[in-house]
């Protein structure tokens, strides 16, 4: 599993759904939807506490429909923790290196204090990297 180290900045005091306005939530919804359309994979975004860190993110990923073909981006603002969990089928198209790059993109936004921007950048990057060329007659359409 890839790990990205971060510098020391003040942690945000906001958490959960209250952290975002309705327009921000709608923006994130569109980003998740767009990621699915681009890659054909199920994407999940969780913003909230991850009591057990990576294990909590993996547990949340397992709750997604068709988890083997799903990608979960989990952010815990209290612990300033970012987790990306990819399904067992997804890793064929989205390796750990791509997940690292997504974390770097997210970190840039988070350090600047723009949580929405960070999550959107991470989702977009993951979707672009997970896109694979369709093989006509040999592949299921996304």
């Amino acid at each position: 599993m890839a790990q990205v180290d971060a510098g020391s900045t003040a942690s945000p005091s906001i958490t959960g759904a209250r952290a975002f306005s309705a327009s921000q939530v709608a923006d994130l919804q569109r980003t998740v939807e767009r990621a699915r359309e681009i890659s054909g994979l199920c994407f999940g975004l969780r913003f909230g506490p991850l009591p057990q860190g990576r294990e909590s993110a993996v547990a949340a990923h397992a709750l997604l429909p068709d988890a083997a073909r799903a990608v979960l981006v989990a952010v815990d603002p209290a612990q300033r923790l970012m987790e990306i969990v990819t399904g067992s089928v997804v890793t064929v198209h989205l390796d750990d290196r791509s997940c690292e790059l997504a974390l770097l993109a997210m970190r840039s936004g988070f350090v600047a204090g723009d949580l929405v921007r960070g999550m959107k950048d991470g989702l977009d990057l993951l979707a672009q990297h997970a896109r694979y060329p369709r093989v006509v007659n040999l592949d299921e359409p996304a």
Partner: peptide
């Protein structure tokens, strides 16, 4: 749940 996860990455900011 562990078998469904194939990989990913972790990080902090």
């Amino acid at each position: 749940s562990a078998s469904l996860a194939g990989g990913g990455a972790s990080g902090r900011w």
